[in-house]
Write a protein that binds this DNA or RNA. Structure first.
Length: 281
RNA sequence: CAGAUUCUCUCUUGGCA
């Protein structure tokens, strides 16, 4: 069963949902019964692909076969899928279903809800989830805070974002690379160059090791809020720390150079990428 | 009892207001 589940997951990750279904059927023929994880894996893949009706069909199959019951992971996948699609009504409906099944929402469930509300700008509802977490003594983790930070950041609510970040630090919840990415992104969009600088210093003084996404986020923040020199300093740091530039890096820098009319520098950048075999698409 | 599945971040900005 583990093997089949993993194979199905692999197929889904390469986008071959049909093969995943084939495997699922083959599994039946070989007399191996799918378990919750198998169903969860399949459903999650369809959900991520935006095939929400198919996902619900698989859910019905799971119920009909009766061999296994949906668990919190099942519900979380479904909730996440509808949340990502902006189908708040369906998401809430499935959240209801979770409690109707006698299951307890976990932190992941609540993070999914908050992310969906945040992305839809439904801050009252998002905050009510935060209150729910306090009331029932859920432990807010790094992802919880990252989700909140991103919600406020996207909305341009810098005050709220900073307050949230402050609480995060007070509660000793460890920031990770996503946290810094999120902050850089928000400050960049608001053209707050000094804030971007401050975040970068905090990152350097933390034990978080920057990944390509963080370097990219910092460069993009400086593209909007800073100077070419700012961007290049991050780029140098990226290379010195042996972090491989990717196509985000290229696009950001290329855009920055072009917007300043530095077409020749942009050409050099292209050459450098080609020489090093760094992907630019 | 443990092990496989679920949550957050970075370029690309068009259309309407």
């Amino acid at each position: 069963v583990f093997t089949y589940s993993l194979m199905i997951k692999a197929c889904c990750e390469t986008g071959s949902h049909d093969r995943a279904i084939e495997l699922f059927k083959e599994m039946h023929r070989s007399g191996v019964s799918p378990n919750v994880v198998t169903y969860n894996t399949l459903m999650d893949a369809f959900g991520k692909a935006g095939k929400l009706e198919e996902m619900e069909e698989i859910y019905s199959m799971m119920l009909e076969h009766g061999a296994c019951k949906p668990d919190v992971w099942t519900q979380n996948s479904i909730i996440r899928s509808f949340g990502r699609a902006g189908r708040i009504d369906k998401m809430e409906q499935w959240f209801q279903n979770l409690t109707n099944l006698g299951l307890q929402p976990d932190v992941v469930t609540l993070n999914c809800l908050m992310d969906a509300y945040g992305k839809e700008g439904m801050f009252k509802k998002m905050v009510s989830v935060v209150n729910y977490m306090h009331k029932y003594h859920y432990k807010m983790n790094t992802i919880t805070y990252n989700t909140l930070l991103d919600a406020y950041g996207r909305a341009g609510e810098i005050e709220q974002m900073e307050q949230t970040f402050h609480i995060m630090k007070c509660k000793s919840v460890k920031p990770d690379s996503v946290t810094f990415c999120t902050l850089l992104n928000a400050y960049g969009k608001k053209a707050l160059r000094n804030k971007v600088k401050k975040v970068w210093l905090q990152l350097e003084n933390s034990d978080v090791l920057p990944d390509a996404a963080v370097y990219n986020a910092a460069m993009d923040a400086y593209r909007r809020a800073g100077t070419i020199t700012d961007i290049e300093s991050i780029y140098q740091a990226m290379i010195m720390n042996r972090c491989r530039p990717d196509f985000f890096t290229y696009n950001i820098m290329n855009l920055a150079y072009r917007s300043q009319g530095l077409d020749d520098t942009a050409e050099k950048l292209l050459l450098q990428f080609q020489e090093n075999g760094w992907s630019i698409s």
